[in-house]
Design a protein around this nucleic acid. Sequence first.
RNA 1: GGGAGCAUAGCUCAGCUGGUUUAGAGCAUCUGCCUUACAAGCAGAGGGUCCGCGGUUCGAACCCGUGUGCUCCCACCA
Length: 882
Amino acid sequence: MELSKNYVPNEVEARWYEHWLRKEYFNSTPDEREAYTIVIPPPNVTGVLHMGHCLNNTIQDILIRRARMQGKNACWVPGTDHASIATEAKVVGMLREKGITKSSLTRDEFMAYAWEWKDKYGGIILQQLKKMGCSLDWNRVSFTMDETYYRSVIRVFIDLYNKGWIYRGKRMINWDVKAKTALSDEEVIRKQTKQKLYYLKYLVDDGQPIGSGNIASVENGRAYVTIATVRPETIMGDTAICVHPKDERYKHLHGKRVIVPLINRSIPVITDEYVTMEFGTGALKVTPAHDMNDYQLGQKHNLQVVDIFNEDGTLNEAAEICIGQERFEARKSIIKLLEEGNHIEKTEDYTSEVGYSERTDVVVEPRLSLQWWVSMGKLSEPALKAVMEEHIRFFPPKFRNLYRNWMENIRDWCISRQLTWGHRIPAFYAPDGSFVVAENAEAALEQFTKQGSGVRLDELWQDNDVMDTWFSSWLWPFEVFKGFSDPGNKEIRYYYPTNTLVTAPEIIFFWVARMIMAGFEYMGEKPFHNVYFTGIVRDKQGRKMSKSLGNSPDLLGLIDQYGADAVRFGIMIASPAGNDILFDESSLEQGRNFNNKLWNALKLVKMWEGRKDRESSDVNRESGKITEASRLKPPNFAINWFANRLNQVRSEVNEMMEQFRLSEALKTIYSLIWDDFCSWYLEWVKPGFEQPVDAEVYEKTVAYFEELMELLHPFMPFISEEIYHLLGDHTDDLCVKQTVAPAATNKHLLEAGQLLKEVISALRDARNRNQVKPKDTIKLHIQTKRKKGYAAIENILRKQVNAESVNYTDETIAGSIVVAVEDEKFFIETEQQLDATAIKAELLKDLAHQQGFLDSVIKKLSNERFVQNAKPEVVELERKKQ
RNA sequence: GGGAGCAUAGCUCAGCUGGUUUAGAGCAUCUGCCUUACAAGCAGAGGGUCCGCGGUUCGAACCCGUGUGCUCCCACCA
């Protein structure tokens, strides 16, 4: 068969993925084997594949494929997340294009559009994962709003409510005035923002009437207090002024009242140690309705709460002035009014962090609102313990500290969202405002009736809010196996706890921590044994990849250009667990080059296929002459050495994989293939041009190559499968080939191989330095105590350094290039004119290095305290160096 | 403000229990090669104040202290 010059991935990839699917290799059902389970972190239905997914899913596929080849029942569950905010935004956008506003639709109508959108676009990302070679069990695709899943989410809500852990409370929340929704703390992005700090004068209320109209001026002679604020538009919500109790400047104000400018409301001066005396003027305006801290202060001091904003961020009647204006408009108007009234003492530029909505990028408004909350105290206890006691292991372990810190300071979780797409809160209200929590209206009515309420079914209405998306995805590891909806079923018993969760550290609190909590609460067992945290994929300059920066490469384009294996290689080669990856296309090039290297090695071996010769020996391969050395069949050394080297690396790779050192494992395999196999082994056994190849050499080489492909397969599944089949007529597939444990290795043989490599490199270096042309042959003289050992490798050595002859000598050969490796000496005799001074300089440099090394050893050994204190084996080691 | 982490070659990273470490790898660079598998290649080479300072130790890239710089998380002062 004619093989193309270079490896062409696209056709190969499509063909093999199709084949694997047809053979149903990725499908799993419970059986007697050990299960190895991974649930995919469900991407948003709105998502398209990006570099983060690429990294994350490549890692999962490596783990799953490896487990599959180790005889485990590998099950990787795919699925998507309904992503309420993101999806609703998409659907609203789509409707807008059609000229439909969301408010003109009923809930059911909107949901119909949303489902239509989901069915049309929601599966794109899963299709893209196939291009990457991901071996997901496609019979198990789950969605967080599947019928039973949906019902489970509702029932979990009801259960937690009945346990008293879900409550409805008026709390200060982050409000997105554009999306008109509550945001979780995690959805608020804090950004340094330039602002102005206004110093406002509040008159002390001395019982004197304020000037006419409703704008009071600060008149000469009247006492006032100055406060600093960046939000003058909220002064109408002020219900107190607060100073530090120990602040001497304001002691005279204790117990007094002051007057809010413009609206002339009289408010008390309170004292609290919360106030920082050094900041601003040391006097703080307290606006409980519009600031998190002020709210807490207000509660502590029993202050009135005056909410001056509507839900869209415009001012309401309670503001008394500027009613209907948008908050930033109102700020301008108020400043103007304050200036007119001489209430502004001064303004300063000021930079501080302001919260912005992750979704709409508008400034978040702290707002009092009735929301649904989960009290986290009880839930977090076992979840914290499991990680601290390493029942769940984190890779890298440094994230345990982060986790503990958060879990120990955990706050209640606001789970209601003012959206339509999602799991609707199962609370039903009667016209009098009372409510019950129930699975449906009929069940709700039953409860009302039991309570003695005479409410009718048609009078009940259900809460319009939906739940935070994470309130569904925290059930993911067990509900994909129906562990909650069908407790104790065969699948959940077999697959749960899952083995490894692979995810980004960014969502350790959003998702990982909550899954652990839900797992313990509903399955009585942790959801996974290990958590592998990937890094964040950044661009070359270290910036996070984002749509707005436009630095996010088109992944499918990259797969087209380089091939999926090369992309997998490129993303994995330099990404230890937990380390951010500075993504650079050059690593994909490296992957593509590696593909080619494999391809060319295949071409070489295939060339031998028709030329194997059972009768041949090294004799006719070299020159036809029978010599003493050639009867020793030098390739035996190469064959035996590589068998050992292969086993050695396989053990190393096993160890690395156990420790989740994936990129190191890949590097090790890369080097085994490129250096040991291609650069050394193949060169050592390669017959001369158009010479036949020894049948044993051929067969062993093919076997080694197949083993290498087996080792590589989890990382680069397509090319390894392709080469495996091109190497031989296999009826099985590498994808499901069962790996046997690596054999023990022969230490001496490995050391001999290492020495041979070093000798060859040293001799080549000497040739290079002395400008001996590659084509020019040399005469090699070896001064060694181990002549016997050289017999086995002499032919390899001769070929590798282009020597026309190899002799053994006890004496120095005059006029030759001297090379020393360990305690062996080599003399290169050549026609080449030698530069004696250069050679001497080289030798002296080397001697100095050796001497320095020796000196350090002698120094150590002559140090009595070293000999006394160091471990005997260490001393022994140093003695040997001498 | 509280917490965590990082700093090793131009770049990305190894270096696990302090001792074969006068510190390694890949990429990049340089030199020489179109050598019948591969120039997307081959053969070699150069490249380091292990962030600074102090300490512990017979011995420190590694342990301790401290300083500097960077990253992330949490909480935030109006």
